[in-house]
Design a protein around this nucleic acid. Sequence first.
DNA 1: CGCGAGCTTGATAGTCATCAACGCAGGTGG
DNA 2: CCACCTGCGTTGATGACTATCAAGCTCGCG
Lengths: 255, 255
Amino acid sequence: MLLGIGHALAQYLIRKLEHYTRLSSEEKESLDALARLRTRRVRARDDIIHEGDVPQFINLVLDGWACRYKTLEDGRRQIVAYLLPGDVCDIGAPILREMDHSIGTITAVTLAEIPLDAAEQLLMAHPRLMQALCWDALTAASIQREWTVNVGQRTAFERLGHLLCELFVRMRVLGLTRGSSCDLPLTQAEIADTIGLSVVHVNRTLQELRSTGFITLGGRELTIHKLESFERVVLFNQNYLHLSHEGRHLDADET
Amino acid sequence: MLLGIGHALAQYLIRKLEHYTRLSSEEKESLDALARLRTRRVRARDDIIHEGDVPQFINLVLDGWACRYKTLEDGRRQIVAYLLPGDVCDIGAPILREMDHSIGTITAVTLAEIPLDAAEQLLMAHPRLMQALCWDALTAASIQREWTVNVGQRTAFERLGHLLCELFVRMRVLGLTRGSSCDLPLTQAEIADTIGLSVVHVNRTLQELRSTGFITLGGRELTIHKLESFERVVLFNQNYLHLSHEGRHLDADET
DNA sequence: CGCGAGCTTGATAGTCATCAACGCAGGTGG
DNA sequence: CCACCTGCGTTGATGACTATCAAGCTCGCG
């Protein structure tokens, strides 16, 4: 049975992992079969899993946007990561047990709920998949470090610009950009909670960014007109995303 | 050959991992043997490895303090993690190849340089060790998320207090506290680069913290007089360190 | 048509950065 | 043994950046 990638439920995960290493068609099909075992639909602005929960599945985002966030007692909230299609919510589930943060949706989201033991079997059988998922997890950790730099050192202008660059590049990896545009379903309040600014200030900083002519943002769509230049202006360097990896020549069956 | 833990080079790593799972004496001895293969001494305020380097070893901190940091073109610097004894510098080395950040020392540091293949062999032979190291890496990622929250949402007062709590608790895990005191070899400039404040403001915030009576800090030593209360004041909740883990009852040979 | 969510704008205040200077202690060299 | 230097901590004055408060706006929706 040969699936066109375009019809694979796990297409975005596969596309992302192939930035690290080629996968055999058997590996892709097994991955996709796992994603088909059980899916779940969550509506926009709803919670997928809560801090303190013990996940029973590995949740994989098949479609839509979600975010990891933490809340302080007094209601302050920090979004610590965005989960795009192909991202895994709780890779550490079997080991850490309890969630130390919550995951909520931005848009409506389709999840694959993958049983822990099925996932384990697959990874034991396919070392390359295991490696690719390790790469994914390590890259996620790298992104987290960059976010710490972002809120710790950069100005409001750079922070926001940097976030937009990152999201655009990550969407492009998934094939979810249209030329220099992509979806950006975030409200200004969500952006504020991401980069540690007030909503009002995000609004003003956005105007400042727009006035440079580099970006257009409105109606849930982001356009970055001259990505290269814009990246320089906001001090964005995509090395931390660990794309363009040597390992891609270590090939699987097809080539 | 039975080593007293106190004499094992890898004693702190072992002590830390045993917060997740018991290790057999063979596992401990193998770990320690790896650490003895090759060691290196780095003096204080020096670099261990640079952004862009491709590490040839897995570097394990045997003794002393180090930090991960990133620098922006204009010189701004953000410390994104502290590495204490028992912490691994470049766990992702075999997979990510290129370092996306630098690692520098705070104090003089003793490193074990562990050959990649030797490490791989050990982990393949001992699944429990592999699991324990995964737990360690996942916990490090969790800490990174918490740091994002720290700089993104908390006030200067809470930020600094939270950092002190974290460092104290992590030192206690290693058995490196003396009652309610522990070493704290950071300068105010380093603290500033950690929590995204200016040196001047760190200085003033420290005075504010001292004036609460909860902490004493000076001459490289930190004392937290009433940890529980202090934790509440600065909104510190140690769940994200993933200590006190169920898994510890899954036992190894000795018990 | 009224409502609410999200976006926008203006005014004001607070937090924190910057600049500049001084104190103090340990280390170096004469 | 003392002058000097340097790294680190401390203090005061000033101003920039960003939060907060309050209100108006727009648009999709019941």
